[in-house]
Simulated scan of single mutants.
Amino acid sequence: MKSLFKVTVLAATMAMALNAQVFAEENAGKAAAAPAPAVSAEKKFDTDDQQAAYALGASLGRYMENSLKEQEKLGIKLDKTQLIAGVQDAFADKSKLTDQEIEQTLQGFEARVKASAQAKMEQDAKASEEAGKKYRDSFAKEKDVKTTKSGLMYQVEKEGTGEAPKDTDTVTVNYKGTLTDGSEFDNSYSRGEPLSFRLDGVIPGWTEGLKHVKKGGKIKLVIPPDLAYGKTGVPGIPANSTLVFDVELLDVKPTPKNETEANKPAEKPAEKSGK
Rank of each mutant, 00 (worst) to 15 (best):
K2A: 07
V7A: 14
L10N: 11
M16D: 13
A17S: 12
L18H: 14
L18C: 08
A20P: 11
A20V: 13
A24C: 09
A24I: 02
A24F: 10
G29H: 05
K30E: 09
A32L: 11
A36I: 14
S40L: 14
E42W: 13
T47A: 07
D48P: 10
Y54A: 11
A58R: 11
S59A: 14
N66W: 03
N66H: 05
S67W: 10
L68T: 07
E70N: 04
Q71G: 09
E72D: 14
K73C: 00
G75E: 05
I76P: 10
K77H: 10
L78T: 06
K80N: 12
Q82K: 15
Q82N: 12
L83C: 00
V87L: 12
A90W: 02
A92G: 01
A92F: 00
K94D: 09
R112H: 06
A115W: 07
A117P: 00
A119V: 09
K120N: 10
M121P: 07
A127K: 07
A127P: 08
A131C: 08
K134H: 15
S138T: 15
D144A: 11
T148P: 01
K149W: 04
K149P: 06
Q155T: 12
E157F: 03
G160L: 01
G162K: 01
E163V: 11
D167Q: 12
D169W: 00
T172M: 02
T172R: 00
T178F: 01
T178K: 08
S183L: 00
S183K: 15
F185E: 07
D186K: 12
R191E: 15
F197L: 08
G201S: 15
I203L: 10
E208W: 07
G209A: 01
K211D: 04
K211E: 00
K215I: 00
G216N: 02
K218Q: 09
I219V: 10
I219A: 04
K220E: 14
I223R: 07
L227P: 04
I237F: 06
P238D: 05
S241M: 07
D246A: 03
L249G: 01
P256C: 06
P256Q: 01
T260Q: 11
N263G: 12
A266T: 08
A270Y: 15
S273P: 08
G274N: 07
